[in-house]
Design a protein around this nucleic acid. Structure first.
Length: 126
DNA sequence: GTCGTGACTAAAC
DNA sequence: CGTTTAGCCACGA
């Protein structure tokens, strides 16, 4: 017969097997993967990252992820719409320097998106 | 539950 | 150009 004593962690294990990743964990993982896929010298906007990850309405989540934990992510390559840096003061300056070190050119206060916007893979044929 | 806030965005003025 | 407004999602008080 089976031991009547509850196995430690069994409940958690069952949940993990049943649910796999929670949907919010899935979203976050997908978004982090997309950010990591932006090559050096290229950039993308919050909205583009969210859309490329499969969540067009989640641009604010992209920002939240970068704010809370950007370790391992090329955070400097994520910009506001139109190639605008959304950080403030010193942080904004650091982002600009990091991008310029990668060869990214600016037009005034914005990144030259024409030249540096990363095109994510799509399922479209042109 | 509501409410305010944020590395957002598009539109309107 | 700049500001405001409304829509959006997650979080914490």
């Amino acid at each position: 017969m089976r031991d009547a004593r509850p196995v430690p962690g069994a409940k958690l294990k069952r949940r993990i097997i049943r649910d796999g990743l929670r949907s919010d964990e899935l979203r976050e993982a997908a978004i982090r993967r997309v950010i990591r896929s932006i090559p050096k010298g290229k950039v993308a906007t919050y909205g583009q990252v969210a859309a490329a990850a499969g969540y067009p309405l989640y641009h604010r989540l992209v920002a939240r992820i970068l704010r809370s934990d950007a370790t391992g992510l090329p955070w400097q390559r994520v910009l506001g719409a139109g190639g605008q840096i959304k950080l403030r003061q010193a942080a904004a300056y650091e982002q600009r320097l990091r991008l310029e070190m990668e060869g990214v050119k600016f037009k005034g206060k914005r990144v030259d998106m024409q030249a540096h916007q990363h095109r994510f893979r799509t399922w479209e044929l042109d």
